[in-house]
């Protein structure tokens, strides 16, 4: 059974490219346009990995992760945060919220696939 990954990013093109790459590698993908939107996607279905941007309108990534981790079904779901090299403090906040993995922006699709594959295999 294919593993399901939730991608949360306000950029449609990022969602699209990452989706293409992950689907190509054999994962199921669902997407959210920001933290608030993504929370509505967490309707109890099994999600094996969350990939989330930090800076987003409506609800930022750190708040989203903290909220998601409050839901029993997603308490233990691994999270990859999309950080930038200049955001060490954001990275620490994200880790405190429960996002223990990260990929530094800007990234190439292969880099994302590499990080994902360590945590969840399709």
């Amino acid at each position: 059974m294919a593993k399901t990954i939730l991608i949360v990013d306000d950029s449609a093109s990022v969602r699209q490219v990452v989706s293409i790459a992950l689907k190509g590698a054999g994962y199921e993908v669902i997407t959210g346009t920001d933290g608030k939107d993504a929370l509505t996607k967490l309707n109890g279905q099994r999600i094996h990995l969350i990939i989330s941007d930090v800076n987003m309108p409506n609800m930022d990534g750190i708040t989203f992760v903290a909220e998601a981790k409050k839901l029993p079904a997603y308490k233990f779901t691994p999270v990859i945060m999309l950080t930038t090299e200049s955001q060490e403090d954001k990275k620490r906040q994200a880790q405190a919220a429960g996002a223990k993995a990260w990929v530094t922006k800007p990234f190439q699709p292969e880099q994302m696939l590499g990080a994902v594959a360590k945590l969840v295999q399709p």
């Binding site: 093109s13 990022v14 490219v17 800007p106």
Partner: peptide, 15 residues
Amino acid sequence: FRAAHTLKGSSGLFG
């Protein structure tokens, strides 16, 4: 800032 940041991130994705 976010606009510039998002632009950079997406451009990177397309190389």
